[in-house]
């Protein structure tokens, strides 16, 4: 019985630790982006397309990943929404004509390449993913 509880404890805490490690989200942007630090609120506004311009009035081009754990972790940590609420939000925006959703990528590699090549672009990746030629944005 004791062994069973121990294994269960290891399983539960182990998965939490693993989950936390996997969900280490890094915000990246094109090198031309003037902001190097963003507030939590600004990140949320950018990906919900409420904030569409950088400080120098250039256009913000957010990029997101398709439904993955890193996408879920990003939504949870920085947008404050679950995947289902995120989907409902964008359906509302799309079907009322008030906005187009961020560009979506199947892999982190593709997203990094897009951010590196597109002025104004901003996205997120797992911190362990290679991210050359982009700026890392701090979230305060």
């Amino acid at each position: 019985m004791k062994k069973g509880i121990m294994y269960l404890t290891i399983l539960v805490f182990g998965s939490v630790v693993w989950g936390t490690a996997y969900a280490d989200v890094l915000l990246i942007a094109h090198k031309s982006v003037p902001e190097k630090v963003l507030s939590e609120k600004e990140v949320r506004q950018i990906f919900m397309r409420k904030k569409m311009k950088w400080a120098d009035n250039s256009v913000i081009k957010p990029a997101v990943l398709e439904d993955t754990e890193i996408h879920d972790a990003f939504l949870e940590q920085h947008v404050g929404r679950s995947r289902s609420k995120w989907r409902a939000y964008w359906k509302k925006m799309v079907f009322t004509g008030r906005g187009l959703p961020p560009k979506t990528f199947e892999s982190q590699k593709e997203l990094v390449r897009y951010v590196a090549e597109t002025p104004g672009a901003v996205g997120y990746i797992n911190s362990r993913t290679s991210h050359k030629n982009v700026t890392v944005i701090s979230v305060k």
Binding site: K50, K51, M52, K53, N57, R87, A88, Y89, K91, K92, F95, T96, G97, R98
Partner: peptide
């Protein structure tokens, strides 16, 4: 600008919090 946008044409009417998405079943 973020503080100023202009829409011209036929658009969903602003009224309450949920009127603009009243026909969007998936949004509620």
């Amino acid at each position: 600008r973020d503080w100023l946008g202009l829409r011209v044409g036929r658009m969903k009417l602003r009224y309450g919090f949920y009127n603009q998405s009243r026909d969007i079943d998936a949004a509620r």
